[in-house]
Design a protein around this nucleic acid. Structure first.
Length: 475
DNA sequence: GTCAGGTATATAC
DNA sequence: CTCCGACTGATTCGG
DNA sequence: CCGAATCAGTCGGAGGTATATACCTGAC
């Protein structure tokens, strides 16, 4: 019976160091001390996601409950796990009150350190610097198995707590038994980024160049008439994607696992991980792709295999002309590396930049505490000369830039509103973005998508900033 | 009792 | 989703 | 030849936009 206080202490120790090996050692030592049935519970706590998943309690609920902290640690790991289960079980009318009840009783028994841990666990803000990646290594170390083997188990099962249980109970042989199975989604392979098609092709003898469609990444499993669709976080979204289910149901095979993108009711497939009994994860992409072309010629995403930069660029132009984001360039010889963001897949998206005006900024948290971080960005309204807020960003800033802008913005302060400092609209900043979308939140009716700072433009006065109409034209 | 609107949560990008 | 920064492990450099 | 410097890869953490759903509350 492990006290919750041990877990809280380990979390503190982990948060207190930036050394990954030290985090792993601390976590592994804790895992080794646990009772077998506590392993999945604690693995979840320490990777920031309880084994029950999200249970419908967020910031507002958990910080709305404030009983006086207990003096002595008395909670066990299982008590917190049981409370989370109880909270999840509360649904329907009056459920919010029942949830608060369960939480109040729990927190009454917690010391202030424990209560703090519990609150951050519910809000997903554990911020101890150890999520799934570190936990996998800790599990391997605790179980005395190679890290690669634990990692493989995690990738193939998509389930960290289960992987931990298997590793600690059955060790190496248990993990080797974890295989690819239908209706148990694997973590999707991810892409890194490249600035140009030529950069992306570099180092590949031969590459697949495919449209990059901006929809929802999906993994589809089918056996006979049974079809399930999963998102990149392995959530089951079958019910929401009836069109995809229909389209895949019509294909001529008995069973398969497909990777693709759902976009406006259409389904674009770009990979095949399993087909009628054959696991294809370790087969080169070009073979998976040609087999996919046989199974699903109608649904296969537009693309081609080539080593010619010109041809790849033509495909990029086609994709953009068709209104899509760009292309993904993939090594034709690469296996399907579940869960990895490797260099074998590289996405190429053109970047647009705009010169916008800083209207204010918000104080940062964590490592950005004491710095003005999140910028409020305005576009110029050509008809009035006023500046209209169109979005925020905190991305693309180095520590040096953060320090500089804090100083410059405070010198232009005109008011404070909550955590925001509003400033005279004098500084122009060059912002890169993926596009704009219609907004109900902002007065101009447009919002920036994935805005990030490129650099400040001290050479440019605010009257020359880009206009609202120019942004609207992107919609 | 029913319905509309607001708040909170969760999950896509 | 996107970016920066810290750490790690592998490889190259230099005395 | 071995320790120091360099480099690439990995991970965490900073927080943006949207939409969908469930529940609660207040008006009628």
């Amino acid at each position: 019976m492990t006290p919750l206080a041990d877990v809280v202490a380990a979390s503190r120790a982990v948060a207190g160091t930036s050394s990954r090996s030290s985090k792993v050692a601390t976590l592994a030592a804790l895992l080794r001390r646990l009772d077998p049935d506590e392993v999945s519970i604690v693995t979840g706590f320490l990777s920031g996601i309880p084994r029950q998943g999200r249970v419908g309690v967020g910031y507002s609920t958990i910080y709305g409950v404030e009983p006086a902290p207990g003096p002595e640690p008395s909670l066990a790991v299982r008590d917190l796990d049981q409370a989370i289960t109880d909270v999840k079980a509360a649904t329907g009318s009056g459920s919010a009150a029942r949830r608060r009840d369960v939480l109040a009783q729990l927190l009454t028994r917690a010391t202030s350190d424990e209560a703090d841990f519990i609150r951050r666990l519910f809000t997903g803000e554990l911020r101890q610097g150890a999520l799934a990646g570190i936990m996998v290594d800790a599990v391997a170390k605790a179980a005395g198995v190679p890290a690669e083997l634990a990692r493989r188990g995690y990738m193939l099962s998509g389930d960290l707590t289960r992987t931990a249980e298997i590793a600690l109970a059955d060790g190496e042989s248990g993990l080797r038994g974890v295989g690819f199975e239908l209706f148990r989604p694997v973590l999707p392979m991810l892409a890194s980024t490249a600035d140009t098609v030529a950069d992306a092709l570099a180092g590949f003898a031969r590459a697949s160049v495919e449209w990059k469609v901006d929809g929802i990444r999906i993994q589809i499993h089918r056996r006979g008439s049974d079809v399930r669709v999963y998102t990149r976080n392995l959530n089951d979204v079958t019910e929401a994607l009836a069109g995809t289910v229909d389209a895949v149901s019509r294909l001529h095979f008995e069973q398969a696992v497909l990777d693709g993108e759902a976009y406006r009711g259409e389904t674009f497939l770009f990979d095949l991980l399993h087909a009628d009994g054959d696991d294809l994860l370790d087969v080169p992409l070009e073979q998976r792709s040609s087999r996919l072309a046989e199974l699903a010629p109608e649904l296969k995403i537009p693309g081609t295999f080539t080593s010619d930069t010109r041809e790849a660029e033509r495909l990029l132009d086609d994709a953009l002309a068709a209104g899509h984001e760009g292309v993904v360039v993939k090594d034709a010889a690469s296996p399907y590396a579940a869960g990895r963001r490797g260099k074998a897949w590289r996405k190429v998206k053109p970047v647009r930049t705009y010169d916008l005006v800083v209207l204010g900024a918000e104080w940062g948290h964590g490592r950005r505490r004491g710095r003005l971080s999140n910028l409020h960005l305005g576009a110029r309204d050509a008809s009035t000369g006023e500046f209209v807020m169109v979005g925020k960003t905190f991305k693309g800033m180095t520590d040096e830039l953060l320090a500089w802008q804090t100083q410059e913005l405070l010198a232009r302060e005109v008011a404070r509103r909550g955590i925001a400092v509003l400033v005279r609209p004098e500084l122009v900043v060059e912002i890169a973005l993926d596009g704009v979308q219609a907004s109900t939140r902002y007065p101009g009716g447009v919002a920036l998508r994935f805005a990030r700072v490129k650099r400040y433009r001290p050479d440019k006065p605010p009257e020359e900033a880009d206009t609202l109409d120019e942004l609207r034209a992107l919609m």
